[in-house]
Amino acid sequence: MSPLIKKKEEGIKIPSRYVLLLIVIGCTALIVVTYTTPTISEPVSRALGFVITPFERGISSAGSYFSALGVRFKNLTELQDENAILQSEVDRLTIENTELQQNRYELSALQKLYDIDAQYEDYETTGARVIARDSGNWFYSFVIDKGAEDGIQKDMNVMAGSGLAGRVTQVGSTWARVKAIIADDSNVSAMVLSNSAQMIVSGDLEKYREGVITFSQLMDSEDAAKVGDKVVTSNISEKFLPGILIGYIDSIELDSNNLTKSGTITPAVNFTQMNEVLVILRMKSDAAGYNYPDTE
């Protein structure tokens, strides 16, 4: 060993294992404190986010350039085939769309009669860009480039395209962290659209590798819920606004208690290709009594 390195080590007198022990004790205390009172970590994350988000904003655009490059290498014939299929789908959907529009006029007329406002189109939203993703392979949360300054608050719902993506769990001044509904520790109270049967939708790392998330505790004694049915957020959910599309039922099984059912759901959002999201500025907590005519 050269004398230069030795000299450096002489400069520091405290043995490293004591420092290690000290930091470990500090960390354990921090875990306990922040786990029991989550609000404590907020000022810290606010300050740090202020430094880091500008970098992430810049670099993530470089990242999406890479992924766009990968897509461009897709086989040309493959794309042409896809185009033909999509074209026929566009035709089919246009027909369906006109039909649906007619239905919608009818619906809005009827809703006026019943004094019900349309629910989900009314929600005021703001667009945001995804600038960072969870750096590991264990959980799925992401960071968006809007924060408290843009009116984002904790527990606001986040949509991507037409489906529910997640919920804001932490807010900085110019950024916010969103926990996706596919994260292993996420639970959403939901219902089947067709018969309003309640269920719990939970993210599951094991199942998500197959492209689905799980649901459980579905009370459906009449066997009304079928594969392919739409699942939306429930109106009894504490944090999620009612009627936001989560996905479609992929499989159903009767639980061993013969009462409830569980199974899997294909989410409506493609989480791997998600770059822009919509944050709904209305919160469930101030939407209470918002449009339930039968409570009056």
């Binding site: 960390c27 354990t28 205390a29 875990i31 922040t34 989550p38 740090l48 959980f139 962290r177």
Partner: peptide, 12 residues
């Protein structure tokens, strides 16, 4: 700070 639900585990 950015991705954990509580602070300390990844640090450790």
């Amino acid at each position: 700070v950015f991705f954990g639900d509580f602070i300390g585990l990844y640090t450790m």
